[in-house]
Amino acid sequence: MRFNPKARLDTSRVSDRGRGGGGGGGFGGGGMQIPIPTGTKAGGGIGAVIVVILLIVLTQCVGDSTGGFTLPDDSLDASRVSSDDTGRYDSCRTGEDANNDPDCARVAVENSLTSYWSQALRQQGESFHPEQQLVTFTGSVSTACGAATADVGPFYCPADEVIYLDTTFFPEVLQQGLGGPSGDFVEPYVLAHEYGHHIQNLLGTMGRVRTQQGPTSDAVRLELQADCYAGIWAGKATTTTDELGEPLLVDITEDDMAQAVAAAKSVGDDRIQQQSGQQVNPEGWTHGSAEQRQRWFLTGVQQGTLEACDTFSASQL
C-alpha cells in the first residue's frame, strides 16, 4: 500500500485520547465485557467486539422490544465526543507522512474511506455524513455505548457514530492471540470493516437485526455485510481523493489484499472457537466462519456494489 506524497491529509475527524481516555457520555454505566478465550487478551478482537456493541445497541442503546434500531435524540451531539486530544496526529499533513508513519497512514485510510463512501452513497441518492471521529486510545475509553477497555478491540459505536481503536490490538490480540497476519494492510481492513458498520447505520440496516446468534442469524448477516463493504472500499481505494482532488492512494498490491483476506480468516467464529480450545459450534456464531468472512470480503472487492453485499437477502451465506 502506497500513498500519494502530494495528497493533503485531513486530521479533523481523527483524535487520540491516550491512556484511560474519557468523554463520550454513556447509558446507565453499563460496561462492555466479553468472554476472554484462554491465551488471548480479547475474545476475538474484531470478530467478537461488534457482538458486544450489537448487544448493547439492542438492549441499552436501543431499548426497543422489537429489536428495531433507535437512538436517543441527543445521541449525535458532538459535545458528547471528547475533545481531550493528545496531539498524536498533529504532524500528519501529507501522503508522504502517511508513507513514513503508521499513525499518519491511519489518518489517510480514514480520509480514503470518507472520500469513497461520500461519493458512493450520494450517487445512489442516499444521505451521507462521515463518522464523527476515529478515536484511538490506550487501556480504556468512555463511549456513548458504555465504558470499554483495550480487551474489547476495535469497534464502532452507533450511538455516537465513533470508531474506537486501541492500536495494541494488532500485535497483542490479532497476531499473538489469534495467529493473524501482520502487514500494512491489516489495519486498513479492520478500519474499513468498522466504517462499514457506519454505512449500515446510515442506511438503517442495523434496524433489521433481530436474531443475534446462529449461522444464518441477522447478527452474522450484519457482520458479513460489513466485510463486504470493506472489500468494496479496498477494490476502489485508489480512486479516492483528498479535498482538492489529489489521489490519496496510488497503489494497493496483491500482497495487501492477501493480508486483508488472512485477517478476515483469523477472526472467523470457527477459528476463534478453535483458538480458544472450544468445539466448533455454528449455533454460537455471531460473525460468520473464516471461509464466509473471506468470501464476502472478496465479493466486495470483485463486484463492488451495495447490491452484491446484500447478505440479508442471500439464501446462502
Rank of each mutant, 00 (worst) to 15 (best):
P188E: 09
A226P: 08
P188N: 00
P188A: 06
R208H: 05
L203D: 06
E243C: 06
V261G: 00
A260H: 03
P215Q: 01
A219Q: 05
T240Y: 13
A219S: 12
H197W: 03
E187K: 07
D255H: 08
E243F: 02
H198S: 13
E243W: 11
T238A: 03
A260T: 12
L203R: 11
E254P: 11
I232C: 13
A264C: 02
T211I: 08
W233E: 12
T238L: 03
Y195R: 06
D256L: 05
V190G: 01
C228E: 05
S266W: 04
A258I: 13
G214L: 11
P188I: 12
D242Y: 04
L249S: 03
R221K: 14
Q200T: 04
V267H: 08
T238Q: 08
C228Q: 07
T205R: 15
A262N: 12
T205V: 15
Q213P: 12
R210Y: 09
A260V: 14
V220M: 05
D184Y: 05
H193Y: 02
T240Q: 12
A230D: 06
T241D: 12
T211D: 09
P188W: 00
P247A: 00
G235A: 15
Q213S: 08
V190E: 05
T241C: 02
E223L: 05
L244R: 15
R208W: 12
V261W: 00
E223M: 01
E246A: 08
S266N: 09
R210D: 10
D227E: 15
T205F: 14
A219F: 04
T238S: 06
Q259L: 04
E187Q: 13
T239A: 13
V220N: 04
D256W: 00
V267I: 15
I199S: 03
L224M: 04
L191N: 11
H198L: 04
E243Y: 13
K236T: 05
G196F: 02
A258N: 07
A237L: 09
A258W: 09
G196N: 04
L202Q: 08
W233C: 07
E194I: 01
D256V: 05
V186M: 05
P215S: 08
R208A: 05
K265H: 02
L244K: 15
G245R: 02
V261I: 12
A264V: 14
A237M: 12
V186T: 03
G231T: 06
L222E: 09
N201R: 15
T211K: 04
T241R: 14
G231W: 03
Q212D: 10
T240M: 13
T253M: 09
G245A: 08
G235Q: 12
E223V: 11
L224Q: 06
G231F: 06
A234N: 01
A192S: 07
E246W: 05
R221W: 11
L249K: 07
T241E: 10
Q200K: 02
G204T: 00
A237K: 10
Y189I: 05
I252R: 12
M257N: 00
D242R: 07
V209K: 03
T238K: 03
A264H: 04
H197S: 07
K265M: 10
D184T: 13
Q225K: 14
D184P: 14
A230Y: 02
A260M: 15
S217H: 01
Q212E: 10
D242A: 00
A192I: 10
G231N: 05
E243L: 10
A263S: 14
A264S: 11
I232K: 03
L244Q: 15
S266R: 06
E187S: 09
L222P: 09
V250P: 09
P247K: 12
